[in-house]
Design a protein around this nucleic acid. Sequence first.
DNA 1: ACCTGAACACCGTTCAAGT
DNA 2: ACCTGAACACCGTTCAAGT
Lengths: 224, 224
Amino acid sequence: MKGKETEREEARTRPSKEARGHLDRERVLATAARLVKRHGPEALTMRALAAELGTAVTSIYWHVGNRESLLDALVERTLADLGEIRATGRTPAQRVASVARALRHQLLDHPHLVAMVHERGLTERMFLPAQRTLVHEVHGAGLRGARAADAVRAVQVHVVGHILVERNRERAPQQHPGEEELWTARTAEEDGALARALAGPHDPAALFDVSVKALVTGLLGPAP
Amino acid sequence: MKGKETEREEARTRPSKEARGHLDRERVLATAARLVKRHGPEALTMRALAAELGTAVTSIYWHVGNRESLLDALVERTLADLGEIRATGRTPAQRVASVARALRHQLLDHPHLVAMVHERGLTERMFLPAQRTLVHEVHGAGLRGARAADAVRAVQVHVVGHILVERNRERAPQQHPGEEELWTARTAEEDGALARALAGPHDPAALFDVSVKALVTGLLGPAP
DNA sequence: ACCTGAACACCGTTCAAGT
DNA sequence: ACCTGAACACCGTTCAAGT
């Protein structure tokens, strides 16, 4: 169901709480990754990590420097594990859109990654692998030079932007006034269906689909 | 050069450091806003704020509750001050795109606002005023019902997403390998112009323009 | 080479005590 | 009604001292 867990297994077989044995960079990173995965990056305090490792807080510093570089290493590792993006579909527009969708799903699989990457200013770097695929597909669509570069970057920004907003929405508190109470047929210029759509629940996947199709259509369409 | 500073002036005429006098919610908020504007929200500690106000740290709590609700109030106030968005241009596509651009500029004028709103999950609320304008313009373009709602939301997400990514890029450290060293004619499938464009400096405004035009074209174009 | 506890300089927040 | 300092429970980090 998760795929490619190879040597991660051995770490999980021995009991985690009291697993002291010897401490090394690998064990620190693995344990930290587990904590982040379960409770989010803000829950990763040096003291909590030390408790989980069964060592003194200060021992961690010897292996990973400090908290900041520990998180850097975690992000680095996750990025390296992401795996390639492949395009599917027949038409150029379909193929470009498929890359965007694949990218989105990859990031949704790592709930905390986007925020951590964002905070570290690594957003660009995160997309370098996918950029090559995008370049290829945009070429396949017949775009060249600066216009091709614009298309690649536009799709990139669109995907990250969408995910950032989407994750944000999930944890957003109920707002007053929110879309629900704001939009009635009267406020929506008598367009009842629009009012219902704006007041109703969000479907991020559907919205992503619509907007990415529109964007790609516009990008690959006739030059201005 | 900055516009609309009315009663803000009086606060600046008296010396800020030692301005004690009586403390009230208004003065706490104003001083906090000044600190955030100058050094960012992370620099707003209760102790620093107390020092600036010339009071004990704990006095602040009586007026604003705690740090979190203080920041909430600041965000609230800034949002309320934003002012309306008006569309310009002749064609429907131009008018919708102009709303997106106006929104972007409004947010760029408040460097810390987007991040603060993002952290608080208020992204949606931030856009409620602009939503009405968007609904009107999308109607003007002939869209109705669910399709109109999709268009409105797609533009919204696009603008915030773009700004989040853009602000992120500004503070991003130099990356290795970055786009500069990755893209040569050889890696770019012999498209030298594309390689130069991807390796060269970013122009966020231009990219925003291109992508928003493409998105709007796609959204207002013939239904799928 | 690795691990430790004590100590430091920060946080936000609570609370009893003042006026 | 408002302001205060002392105290608490957290942080990340440094460092001299241990083995």
